[in-house]
């Protein structure tokens, strides 16, 4: 999976999110992503991450070996 697809999947699942993706090892399998979204408001960090995993349905832990995820409520502007 490439960075653009990863970003697109997260945006599709969380339309109001601002997303920054980095391929930390340049191998297309180890990514760091920061996702900031108003819809995270009032959600635990676990649930925020679960929302991102849902947007990446089935990829995480499979085609995507490792995703270093940072999430924050609010808008990313």
């Amino acid at each position: 999976m490439d960075a653009a697809m990863l970003e697109a999947l997260i945006r599709a699942g969380i339309p109001d999110a601002s997303v920054a993706v980095e391929d930390i090892r340049g191998d297309g399998a180890h990514y760091a992503a920061t996702v900031i979204s108003p819809s995270f408001e009032g959600k635990s960090r676990l649930d925020q991450h679960r929302m991102v995993f849902k947007a990446l349905e089935g990829h995480v832990g499979e085609t995507l070996h490792a995703l270093q995820l940072t999430t924050r409520a609010g808008n990313g502007t």
């Binding site: 676990l46 679960r50 995480v60 832990g61 995703l67 995820l69």
Partner: peptide, 20 residues
Amino acid sequence: NWPTIPQLYIKGEFIGGCDI
């Protein structure tokens, strides 16, 4: 309801994976 390993549990409660 968490797709990766490792998973940490404290007093029976799921805390998170490596990042968290």
